[in-house]
Design a protein around this nucleic acid. Structure first.
Lengths: 149, 149
DNA sequence: AAACAGCCTGAAGTTACTTCAGGGTCAACC
DNA sequence: GGTTGACCCTGAAGTAACTTCAGGCTGTTT
């Protein structure tokens, strides 16, 4: 199977597959000697499926690499896999809590407008002019799950 | 006031302030002729406070630039400001919903392990090997609110 | 033979910064 | 007077996970 076909099967772009190869998320595999095109087997499809599934769960490449490594050490204790999922779940949960606080602040901000009419009287702008209060200082942390835009 | 002092007042790094200047989020301002150091006034502090407040609400630079522009057209109708906040709130809310679905999937995945003991029998790995089902295909969209790691 | 889909590589762009390299300024202390 | 250390400067590169672009070969169809 060629790269375009593989991309279709796992629902991603061919560029993404080439990128995964470059960064070691999937093995390089061999080439058609005639044209130097990449050739993929069932094994590639399996690993790429695994990777895409992990990405759909918002895991980072680093986390996925750890899982792949664990997966290959078949007879080791799976406690580390368990722990990784547990930690990742905690990342996601804390991100949710963070965004929910943001959401509340934005709802409060929205009510400040008061239909003033003109920009200089708009309560939203006035509100944004004031410094951050303590409750807002729990800043957006640099977590690896992507943002809202 | 010099850049270090300003950074302290708004609780960010001096590099961030220089970055904001480069990207137009705050005006360039003047320099001390003796040493070429940046000098800041109360007006700078006000605008930077505004920007930091917006960032604490996870707005993108693009959104903040729009707000700054609106803010300067004092006598225009503030409907566009209203709308921007509304749209941003919707970004945040939909990101929350997305992460909550992720959270549920991770909770389900965590239960797959079944204390098998070894990696090759771990239900988590088996689960990740299977392709994404339809409910998971609502992929992580490229929204501007930062991720979970 | 020309057109067009599909493949290749390497580099640059994306976001909002942070880090680094290399160097000038300034107040204080010995 | 020399030096230490805090603070400032610039421009370039690094971060994550891709996407887009430039330039060019391959392969099938008309």
């Amino acid at each position: 199977m060629r790269i375009g076909e593989l991309a279709k099967q796992v629902n991603c772009s061919v560029e993404t597959i080439r990128y995964y190869e470059k960064t070691g998320l999937i093995p390089a595999g061999d080439r058609d000697p005639n044209n130097n095109y990449r050739r993929y087997s069932q094994a590639h499809l399996t690993q790429l499926t695994f990777v895409r599934h992990c990405r759909a769960l918002a895991m980072s490449h680093e986390e996925i690499l750890e899982l792949i490594k664990a997966r290959q050490q078949t007879n080791q204790n799976c406690g580390s896999i368990d722990q990784l999922i547990e930690d990742h779940l905690e990342h996601v949960s804390s991100k949710i809590r963070e965004l929910q606080m943001l959401e509340q602040q934005l709802i409060a901000l929205r009510q400040q407008c008061q239909q003033s009419g003109s920009n200089d009287k708009c309560g939203i702008i006035k509100d944004l002019d004031s410094p951050l209060d303590n409750t807002e200082l729990l800043e957006l942390n640099q977590s690896h799950i992507k943002g809202s835009h």
